[in-house]
Simulated scan of single mutants.
Amino acid sequence: MEEDELINLHFCLGVAIRNAFGLHKSDSELLAAFGVGIHPDDANGLIIKALWKRLQNGEE
């Protein structure tokens, strides 16, 4: 998958990440780690992109 196609994962993997890690909760420590005012959908996008980069580098 190309980087510009990652947006296609928003409604499947992105929602699964948001729900599994509680990013939609106001007291989410993971969401807070991204900084003040980040939206949960933006946070799960950053997680997906980081995972994609690791996979491109052959990391597990």
Rank of each mutant, 00 (worst) to 15 (best):
I7P: 01
I38E: 08
A43S: 06
G35H: 09
G14V: 07
N44H: 09
G45P: 07
I7N: 10
E59H: 12
I38R: 12
A43E: 01
L13F: 07
L55M: 15
G14A: 08
D4G: 10
I48R: 10
D27T: 03
F21P: 01
G35K: 06
L23E: 00
I17L: 12
G35L: 08
F34P: 02
I7K: 11
L51D: 07
V36P: 13
G14I: 02
S26E: 13
S26I: 03
R18V: 02
E29D: 15
A33S: 12
I17H: 09
E3R: 14
S28Y: 02
N44F: 03
F34T: 02
G22C: 03
E59D: 12
E59R: 11
C12P: 04
G45M: 00
E2W: 08
G22R: 02
E29G: 10
E5I: 05
K53M: 11
I17R: 04
S28V: 00
E59F: 08
E29M: 10
L9I: 00
G22V: 05
L9Y: 09
L6T: 11
H10K: 13
A16T: 01
M1A: 15
A20V: 05
I48L: 09
M1N: 08
G22A: 08
I38Q: 09
L23G: 03
S28M: 00
G35I: 05
L6C: 07
F34L: 00
D4S: 15
H10A: 10
K25N: 11
K49H: 09
A20T: 11
R18E: 11
M1L: 10
D4A: 10
L6P: 07
L23V: 02
D41Q: 09
R54K: 11
D41M: 06
L51Q: 13
L30M: 06
A16L: 05
E5W: 03
F11Q: 14
L30G: 03
N8E: 15
E29P: 07
D4K: 12
L6R: 11
K53A: 11
G45D: 13
G22S: 07
L55Y: 11
N44D: 14
L6H: 04
W52G: 02
E60N: 15
L51I: 15
D4T: 13
C12H: 14
R54I: 06
V36S: 13
I47M: 11
N44I: 00
E5S: 12
I7C: 07
H10P: 04
P40E: 02
C12M: 14
F11V: 07
E5L: 14
A32G: 05
F21D: 01
E2I: 08
K53H: 05
N57Y: 15
E2P: 15
A20I: 03
L55T: 15
A33C: 09
L6Y: 06
C12A: 09
G35V: 01
N8L: 15
E3W: 08
A32F: 04
K49T: 13
W52Q: 03
A16D: 04
L55E: 14
A33W: 07
D27P: 03
R54M: 12
L31M: 03
H24I: 00
A16N: 05
N19G: 07
L31E: 00
I47E: 04
